[in-house]
Amino acid sequence: MIPYEEIRVPVAGGELAALRWPARDAGAPVVVALHGITANALSWGAVARLLAGRVTLVAPDLRGRAGSSGLPGPYGIAAHADDAAALAGALGQDRVVLAGHSMGAFVAALAAVRHPDRFGPVVLVDGGFGFPAPTHLSADELMTAVIGPAMDRLSMTFPDRDAYRSFWRAHPAFAGDAWSPEVDAYIQRDLNGEEPALRSGCRLEAVRTDGVGLFQDEVLAAAGELPGPAVLLWARRGLMDEEQGLYDESRLAAAGQPGTNVTAVPVEDVNHYTVLTGDKGAGEIAGALLRAVAVPR
């Protein structure tokens, strides 16, 4: 783990919590990085380490999660996009590079479209291109289809931090050497309350609203409307480490990625989680971010 500082910035309804990993050089570029639907800012810990102080990385806890769990609604992808723009403005930077993983990739794409004066190049990680929602599913059924067991834990309680650690260590995506001190710190940041009744700090209302919002036309269209250069790093394997990931070449074609400003790059031997938290995936992301900050803006 490398040192970071916690900051808070004003947004609609209160203050957004964020983690800041400062660059060695005070004049270095800034990257804003957005996490997934039930994650938090520390999911970017491995990327911060591999960036090695060459940029300043700032990752917020999105509204309704971890340090920002007290922020009220309205929730939704557009609300997160506006929060990201407020964060970029508070950092005093012009057109920062923007990154997002999973749901955060959809937020990043929409933020860059809604606030082109705030953001420059975009790096999407296993998210950003979506598909219309099946019309026969209820909101909760849709959410279960999208994020599965991650949804279940939001209504669970845990007697202590070791129990929560054991819950996550049993997840197929974190089997074997996929676990690390950075992953442990990330999942522990999620917990709220006191023993023996610890629970996730993700607000269920926020997760439901955001999950359904992923299928709104404005959100589905955003990645295809990005005005500048962008890259999508997509994992070959899925949320449960299954062989079929969220994307493959045919799914990306169906989602309309070819012909956009987004270059799609597969990342081998990673799943939806380890594309961000493991060294291989985090290294690919760090490299993409360093290339992005070098693009004239």
Rank of each mutant, 00 (worst) to 15 (best):
W168Y: 07
V219A: 10
L232P: 08
S138C: 05
D140L: 10
P74H: 10
A222Q: 12
V146F: 09
A88M: 02
R169L: 03
V97T: 02
L87K: 07
T157Q: 12
V32Q: 00
E6P: 00
I7G: 01
R153I: 15
I77L: 15
S200Y: 10
G70I: 02
T56L: 14
E141L: 06
A59K: 01
A235P: 01
D82T: 09
A109Q: 09
N261I: 00
G127T: 06
R251C: 01
E243D: 15
P60N: 07
A178K: 11
L98T: 04
T274A: 10
A230D: 02
E225D: 12
V55Y: 14
V125T: 00
L198A: 15
R297E: 13
G100L: 06
L214G: 08
S43D: 15
Q216P: 01
D140G: 06
D177S: 11
G89P: 04
T274L: 05
A105L: 12
V293N: 11
A222R: 11
R251P: 00
G53L: 14
A86W: 05
P74C: 08
F158D: 11
S200N: 11
G278D: 12
G259N: 03
A79E: 08
V212S: 10
P22A: 14
A173G: 12
N192R: 14
I7P: 00
A85I: 06
G176F: 08
R65C: 14
W168K: 05
E249C: 01
A99P: 05
G53K: 10
V30K: 03
G193V: 06
W179P: 04
A41M: 02
D160K: 03
I37L: 15
E194V: 12
R153D: 14
V58S: 08
F167H: 12
L71I: 04
R165C: 12
R161H: 15
G27D: 14
E5H: 07
P258S: 09
D61W: 09
G120D: 08
L239F: 01
S43A: 14
A66R: 10
A52I: 05
E218I: 07
P227A: 15
V11L: 13
L71N: 04
D152L: 06
E243N: 06
R114K: 09
A52E: 13
L71T: 07
K280S: 12
A170L: 09
A84G: 04
L226G: 06
M156S: 13
L50A: 09
P3N: 08
M151F: 13
A235V: 02
E194W: 07
T38R: 08
Q257K: 04
P159I: 12
D152W: 04
V47L: 07
A282G: 04
D279H: 01
T277D: 12
D160R: 08
G228E: 15
L142E: 09
M103R: 09
L252N: 07
A112C: 07
A88E: 04
C202K: 02
A59C: 13
R153S: 15
L198S: 13
E242P: 00
A88Q: 04
G283R: 13
R63Q: 11
G283K: 13
P72W: 11
N40W: 03
L42N: 10
V265F: 03
A145G: 13
D117M: 02
D177G: 05
Q257W: 02
L239D: 05
L34S: 09
P196E: 15
G130R: 10
G27Q: 12
E194D: 14
I285E: 06
